[in-house]
């Protein structure tokens, strides 16, 4: 069971990565508008997106 001494810190490290990713996305405004992107993805009709690629 002594593997716990390695696995638990490792798990915490992964959690830290995930939390870091979440904080980044929240600060970058990815959760600002939860309604529009849901309908926007339905519109993907080929080459002519609204965003320059």
């Amino acid at each position: 069971m002594s593997v716990l001494f390695i696995v638990v810190p490792l798990a915490l490290f992964v959690v830290a990565l995930a939390v870091g990713a979440y904080v980044w996305s929240a600060r970058a405004g990815q959760f600002d508008d939860l309604d529009t992107p849901a309908v926007r993805m339905l519109h993907d009709d080929g080459a002519e997106g609204p965003h320059p690629r």
Binding site: D33, D35, T36, V39, R40, H43, P50, H51, P52
Partner: peptide
């Protein structure tokens, strides 16, 4: 409406981007 408004750049040359917050 989202679809239509966000295609304004296709209708008006020079408009670069239009994004709609539907709520």
């Amino acid at each position: 409406c989202v679809w239509l408004v966000e295609r304004v750049p296709l209708l008006v040359p020079g408009a670069v981007r239009a994004e709609l917050d539907v709520r």
